[in-house]
Write a protein that binds this DNA or RNA. Structure first.
Length: 587
RNA sequence: CGGGGCGUAGCUCAGCUUGGUAGAGCGCUCGCUUUGGGAGCGAGAAGUCGCAGGUUCAAAUCCUGUCGCCCCGACCA
């Protein structure tokens, strides 16, 4: 039986909801797919459920093809497993916590690594049982500081999360690649463009991590890519190290007076005015900016570190956070400066007439890390560690050295890709999938070991693989619409055909009824607009809003056995016989 | 947490500056007409103007506080 609109649970809205900003949110609410319950939390209506199920079906098919088994965990979990891995604490305000009647702590799971690990530990003891990949499609809960954009960043969202278990690193690679391949097939079938970017793996201690980003202006992640195929998260981008320059023959360093130079621009201006260079003017790129940061480690230990970057580049806090993770990073405070009188605020540099205050021969004991571009033989204008004095022609490797390098400077369009594939551009993307080699972190913490072929206990190595189901759905909606409404790709459309009966002639309804029966017999999901006493304009507008890609209009030609095939995407309407219409869908 | 905007009928909004009977369009109910692009006419139902205090003869409107929502940022996989 077709789904009849006259009695379906559906109300479309004529106007955009006031609380929606992005297209997918507006249209999904207007067309009756979802309703908001609380910030970032939505109810799913029949149409929405159908699309969600279709997205999930594609994922299930590809998971099965990749040899993964579906399981299902509760969203409501006890505190203990997360306590063992320290994530109860690490997640901070990011998780929903609650207590039962006995005052015991529970949480709504933000992700399920712990319980999957424990499940395998429960049941498996031998290497012969591995490899294993299991997954679930489950609602996740994260108490986001700012949910936004409807389904695109919710506090409740549906995720497919898979976990692989292997004895060997090679096995993990294979499991990882199987999931990665499955993701490529899934996104291709969904018609979602994606780029695979190297992701920062530091935070979770894993060895390898890649994100699937869907390029879109409303994306929240900035990534870089080159025409030659390089793609990376900004945090994971590595700077191309230039060739070292000869030190011999470079002029000696000179200290100069530099009062009132609060910015790099004023410093450059003053240097050009008072100490011009013969071959070319000084620019911001000739200056070395030294920034003092305070790192706070999870242990509570606090460490100052100074990073030096070319003056024409800002320090990118996201990159810095990634570089020093899991430490928290903040700018040094006035207190910090007071405790370190060797640091002259505004005039910090890796050198001093009185002896090095920064770098390897540091007298301050503060680590000094440099941007990779500051290679041996490069000359810089930088602070002299004396109030109101800077120094120029300060040569790396001759006049100063550092304790290492750090990826802290911002990435800019035009920077060379590290793999030599050309200059990069910056683009916005939204994370729709993430594959991650976790390694043995969780297995170690939770004691997941199996006997190997030598009868010795071996700690299992794991991967975790996530796809944001509801986010994918929103991205598809974001991509497939026009000013009239949604236009679903056939692979995820809530119905295969939308039959609209219209006109005052009873025959139209009879012909439409028969047509629906034929289409159903051909195993198509049919939505039948059988609403009588409703003007045609309303039905057409609803059909366009709902967005089933194939529409059949049964109206004025019905008594002659003619119907119109209406392609929602192209807008094209073709009149044909009922038999031809059926044949078109069968073919 | 910082910045901005908004809370009035089921929905989208006007009214607030300058205090004086609570409004429109859509939706909903009933009747008649209408049926290829969100129909017409007529008759209706429907709101503690977010909440609390204050000023005033009188508060949707002015003042104070508070709660909530949306957006930008911070944060976040």
């Amino acid at each position: 039986m077709p789904t009849r609109l006259s009695s379906y649970f559906l109300k479309t809205l004529r106007e955009d909801p006031a609380d929606a900003e992005v297209t997918s949110h507006k249209l999904l609410v207007r067309a009756g797919y979802i309703r908001r319950q609380a910030p970032g939390i939505f109810a799913w209506l029949p149409l929405g459920l159908r699309v969600k199920e279709r997205v999930e079906r594609i994922i299930r098919e590809e998971m099965a093809a990749a040899g993964a088994f579906e399981v299902h965990f509760p969203a409501l979990l006890p505190r203990e497993p997360y306590e063992i891995t320290n994530r109860w604490t690490e997640y901070g305000d990011g998780i929903f916590r609650l207590k039962d009647r006995k005052d015991a702590d529970y949480l709504l799971a933000p992700t399920h690594e712990e319980v999957f690990t424990l499940l395998v530990k429960d049941l498996y003891s031998s290497y012969k049982d591995l490899p294993l990949t299991i997954y679930q499609i489950q609602d996740k809960y994260r108490d986001e500081a700012r949910p936004r954009a409807g389904l695109l960043r919710g506090r409740e969202f549906t995720m497919k999360d898979a976990y692989s278990f292997d004895v060997s690193d090679a096995g993990l690679d294979a499991s990882y690649n199987a999931q990665r391949d499955a993701y490529e097939r899934i996104f291709s079938r969904l018609g979602l463009e994606y780029v695979i970017v190297k992701a920062d793996a530091g935070a979770m201690g894993g060895s390898k991590s890649e994100e699937f980003l869907h390029p879109t202006p409303i994306g929240e992640d900035t990534f870089v890519r080159s025409a030659g195929g390089y793609a990376a998260n900004v945090e994971a981008f590595t700077t191309v190290v230039p060739e070292a320059l000869p030190i011999d023959g470079q002029p000696a360093a000179e200290v100069f007076d530099s009062p009132n130079t609060p910015t790099i621009a004023t410093l450059v201006e003053l240097a050009n005015a008072n100490h011009p260079r013969s071959d070319r003017a000084w620019t911001a790129a000739d200056t070395l900016k030294n920034v003092v940061l305070a790192l706070t480690y999870p242990s509570g230990e606090r460490e100052l570190v100074i990073i030096g970057v070319p003056g024409d580049r800002e320090v990118d806090m996201k990159r810095v956070e990634a570089a020093f993770s899991p430490a928290e990073v903040e700018p040094a405070t006035d207190e910090d400066f007071k405790r370190n009188p060797g640091l002259v605020k505004g005039y910090i540099g890796p050198w001093s007439p009185a002896g090095a205050v920064l770098g390897l021969e540091s007298t301050t004991g503060i680590r000094y890390l440099l941007d990779p571009r500051v290679v041996e033989g490069t000359a810089w204008i930088t602070g002299a560690n004396i109030d109101q004095k800077h120094v120029f022609n300060l040569v790396a490797g001759r006049d100063f050295s550092a304790d290492g390098t750090v990826e802290a400077a911002e990435v800019r369009a035009g920077d060379p890709a590290p793999d030599g594939s050309g200059p990069v551009e910056l683009a916005r993307g939204m994370e729709i999938g993430h594959v991650f080699q976790l390694g043995r972190k969780y297995a170690e913490a939770l004691g997941l070991q199996v006997l190997d072929e030598n009868g010795k206990l071996a700690t299992v190595t794991m991967g975790s693989y996530g796809i944001g189901v509801t986010r994918i759905l929103a991205n598809i909606a974001e991509l497939n619409n026009d000013d009239k409404g949604l236009i679903w790709p056939a692979s995820v459309a809530p119905f295969d055909v939308h039959v609209v009966a219209t006109g005052k002639d009873e025959v139209a309804y009879e012909v439409a009824e028969a047509l629906c029966a034929e289409l159903e017999a051909a195993r198509l999901d049919v939505l039948f607009d059988d609403r009588a006493k409703l003007s045609p304009g309303v039905k057409f507008a609803d059909a366009e809003l709902i967005g089933v890609p194939k529409i059949v209009i049964v109206g004025r030609g019905a008594s002659d056995g003619l119907v119109e095939l209406w392609d929602r995407r192209s807008g094209e309407r073709t009149e044909m016989s009922v038999a031809d219409a059926i044949a078109a869908f069968r073919g």
